[in-house]
Write a protein that binds this DNA or RNA. Structure first.
Length: 444
RNA sequence: GUGGCUGUAGCUCAGUUGGUUAGAGCACCGGAUUGUGAUUCCGGGGGUCGCGGGUUCGAGUCCCGUUAGCCACCCCA
């Protein structure tokens, strides 16, 4: 019988665990510098929670089972429902705006492929209780800041910004009701990956003969990359009064958002792109996705405003905006750019032990050094001196301290600088002072 | 759920028209070397050739099935 890691899951040998820790560390650092607070929620939740948010179709893509108490439960496929549940339960006592983040593993029962596994980590950041676009701007700034933290710049990734409100206004102008609108948005979401004729065919099936003319409007909108062009686009539609006013109010929101992004210094990362509508229907305003600048690969991160979800999953409604960034696509990109070089950890000191008689002193010194904050290693079995030095060198230790019969008799600490290849005898008594002075001289 | 490609040691791979006991490099462990690091030399462990079936005197090699991985589609919260 042999056992392997399950499909879509990963085992983290030390090298990869170190990379994962590096990613988590930078996520956490970014969140902290924006003063987001870390929270966590159970990995296992009621299956109903996800059905409530996403519909019955979601069940086929979850790891789910019935527990021994007869509860139907699922491993979390995403963080947002748990967050909404937590916030909803204490909505009245939480100081707003609520700025929270989480780093956690998520599970989806899907076919693994490039950039997509069955178990993956996500960095989730959300601002709840603030409906102004200032929150959207702050969150998008955090997203850019987090990616920059990895050494990525504007030539590496872009934030593609879109707006479901404007989309819905446009669809209203076409006279489509909300059900048809959602179907149309779902078709538009696939625009990039679908042949033009196929798209027209699908549009025709939901909205009839007007599809061809509508397609032209869509293509114009989707090609827009700057705000003046966007304003011009909507003014040229020459719409009737109530809708025109709604659109003008929305464009004012846009101006506010873009100004805030500019002031935060992240404009160069942001691109208007109405090709982004995000799959599921619960987004209610600005939506955005971070992509590799080359356009390759899956989204590095995605998010947007979801003002109705908290109310749907709890008793209180609350405006909210958030994003999630996965470790898989990000890791692929960092690997490709050579930004995931993690140095193998090496000890500050390696103790060279002559024999069992000298081991007692070595162990005692190791404890003292460790208590003082140094990382210390020594061989667990008796080895020839030559072997031990070879080992010390391979482990990348900076200093070796020699515990032989001679040194103990003379009462000296013999320290070998493994980089310089020099040995020096120091008086025995000041072990910690010695360590400090050695590492004061060489940069640790 | 659909399709394409690929499975030989921990890793990268070789393996002839089907032919005897399946190989190399790297990595790992030990020795040469009982007080000083590279290199070198010697030795060792590690394989049900993904799995099952078929054809054949004989299969890592050919055929069928299956499974896993990768990639694309579907989906993408």
């Amino acid at each position: 019988m042999s056992f392997e890691t399950l499909p879509g899951f990963r085992a983290f040998y030390p090298e990869n665990a170190a990379k994962r820790a590096a990613i988590f560390g930078l996520w956490r650092a970014a969140a902290s510098s924006f003063n987001f607070l870390e929270y966590d929620a159970p990995v296992l939740e009621s299956l109903e929670l996800y059905i409530e948010k996403s519909g019955e179709e979601i069940v086929g893509q979850l790891f789910h089972f019935e527990d021994r108490g007869g509860r139907t439960v699922a491993l979390r496929p995403e963080m947002t429902p748990s967050l909404a549940r937590l916030v909803g339960a204490k909505a009245n006592s939480l100081k707003r705006p609520i700025k929270w983040f989480n780093i956690g593993e998520h599970y989806r029962y899907e076919r693994p492929q490039k950039g997509r596994l069955r178990a993956f980590y996500q960095f989730n950041a959300d601002i709840l209780g603030e409906s102004s676009a200032a929150a959207d701007a702050e969150l998008m700034t955090l997203l850019v800041h987090a990616l920059k933290g990895f050494g990525l710049d504007a030539t590496d990734f872009k934030l593609r910004l879109s707006d479901r409100d404007l989309w819905l206004f446009l669809l209203q102008a076409e006279g489509l009701d909300s059900t048809i609108s959602l179907a149309v948005l779902s078709i538009i979401d696939k625009l990039e990956r679908t042949q033009r004729e196929k798209t027209i065919e699908e549009l025709t099936s939901v909205m009839g003969e007007s599809a061809v003319a509508f397609m032209a409007k869509v293509e114009t909108l989707v090609a827009i990359r700057d705000f003046p062009a966007l304003e011009k686009y909507f003014s040229r539609l020459a719409l009737e009064k109530p809708l025109a006013e709604l659109i003008e109010a929305r464009l004012a929101e846009w101006r506010f958002l873009l100004k805030a992004l500019e002031n935060s210094g992240v404009s160069e990362f942001v691109e208007i792109d109405f090709g982004i509508v995000r799959g599921l229907a619960y987004y209610t305003g600005f939506v955005f996705e971070a992509f590799e600048a080359s356009g390759e690969g899956r989204a590095l991160a995605g998010g947007g405003r979801y003002d109705d979800l908290v109310g749907k999953l709890g008793s209180q409604s609350m405006p909210a905006v958030g994003f999630a960034m996965g470790d898989v696509t990000l890791g692929d990109l960092l690997e490709k750019k050579g930004l995931l070089a993690v140095a193998e950890s090496s000890p500050d000191f390696i103790l060279i032990i002559g024999g069992e008689a000298e081991r007692a002193q070595a162990l005692s010194d190791a404890s003292a050094l460790r208590a003082a904050g140094y990382s210390v290693e020594y061989p667990l079995k008796e080895l020839a001196f030559g072997k031990q030095f070879k080992e010390a060198n391979q482990r990348g230790a900076r200093f070796a301290i020699v515990y032989g019969s001679d040194e103990l008799e003379k009462g000296v600490l013999k320290v070998r600088d493994l980089t310089a290849g020099e040995e020096t005898d120091y008086p025995r008594e000041n072990l910690i002072e010695l360590a400090k002075s050695l590492y004061g001289k060489v940069s640790k």
